[in-house]
Design a binder for these strands. Sequence first.
DNA 1: TGTACATCAGTGAACGCGCGTTCACTGATGTAC
DNA 2: TGTACATCAGTGAACGCGCGTTCACTGATGTAC
Lengths: 209, 209
Amino acid sequence: VSSKTQPYHHGNLRPVLVDTAVELARSTGPDGVVLREVARRAGVSHNAAYRHFSDRAALLAEVSDRAYADLERAMVERIAAVPATDERTRAFARLRETGRAYVEFAIREPGLFTTAFTKPDGAGVHTLDHSGSDGPNGPYLVLNQVLDDLVTCGAVTPERRVGADVACWSAVHGFSDLVVHGPLREVPPDLRDAALEVVLDVIQRGLAD
Amino acid sequence: VSSKTQPYHHGNLRPVLVDTAVELARSTGPDGVVLREVARRAGVSHNAAYRHFSDRAALLAEVSDRAYADLERAMVERIAAVPATDERTRAFARLRETGRAYVEFAIREPGLFTTAFTKPDGAGVHTLDHSGSDGPNGPYLVLNQVLDDLVTCGAVTPERRVGADVACWSAVHGFSDLVVHGPLREVPPDLRDAALEVVLDVIQRGLAD
DNA sequence: TGTACATCAGTGAACGCGCGTTCACTGATGTAC
DNA sequence: TGTACATCAGTGAACGCGCGTTCACTGATGTAC
């Protein structure tokens, strides 16, 4: 046993396990995050993970957090790429990009998308109590920021701002689920993309002043 | 062995297995539909089901169809209960009831709701090709009927009718998923119901002429 | 600088679980004559 | 009306699978003196 190739102490196992688990979630979804398989791929015995995670659920929770963060990043990137025009146009364009980024992520990374919404009970759960910091609920906060901007520039009235977050989220989330797992999963991409635009149209029109 | 209590030939096993499986799906979701447990509850040996279903997937598909039909029934009942007023008001009230029925079913019967959308690949999948009969996609057809009525009475223009089905479906489906499995699953009922009304408001406003 | 020793981070074997599915079989039913 | 026989609808044992988790263990590390 060469200490170069297979040191007894891995030295960096925890992050490697998380990365490996994320990769597994990517290709096979949350159910594919199997402790023994993670260990196998990390080249480590099947119970080494218990030094770093109390159990499978703890590892999966971490994977879920990463997936949620990936989704947030996808949204933020697309929002940042919206060109500057007049305030109102730009604010609505940002809202649409937020939605497109969400759906696009779901389609491009179905395994991670599903894993992002697979949290142990009580973790990563929102109260809709809008008052305080809502914890690390990234994508939801990003959406709320975009909606606040719409109010700021006068494109949406404060009354219509109430509950707009859930309305937008529901629409793009439902579209994603129908298209990724649901009865619309075999709709061809061009039809599917056109359908998404209509969804965004309806939401925008429903919110606009 | 008394032939009264335990006849060798059950005589009615197939429907009993389906009923039992539906009950299991109701309480524990699609993953709870376990062949051995279904057989146990039906009081029959664990492989008797193979006389009636080629495998577990075949039984589950039947359960899924039943769940889908239950969802449709819930929608139809609520639509039928909308009181007669002027055409336009009634047509929109029906649309809202359709959405409420959908969400209410998801909340009241999370196991069945989930099972309804757990179909083997290729079964119960829509093309969005609106031209022909779409197969037994009950809830989707019901929604389309309600939307057509809105066009008929002039509440929605034909242009806005295009894609309105997917927009409505996405919104209520997403809301249901967020609330039943997702990050909104611990939102208290009163807040949740208020949020749904806003979702319906936004959709209605987005479609209305 | 060297050494005893606690602690950390791995290993390998084993447990217990429950599943879907298949096989050879048997008890019950119904039909042809 | 009776009977041979094919067929149908069950049974019980077994296979093979892979999992999460635990246990007693060992190799490596780092710290106190």
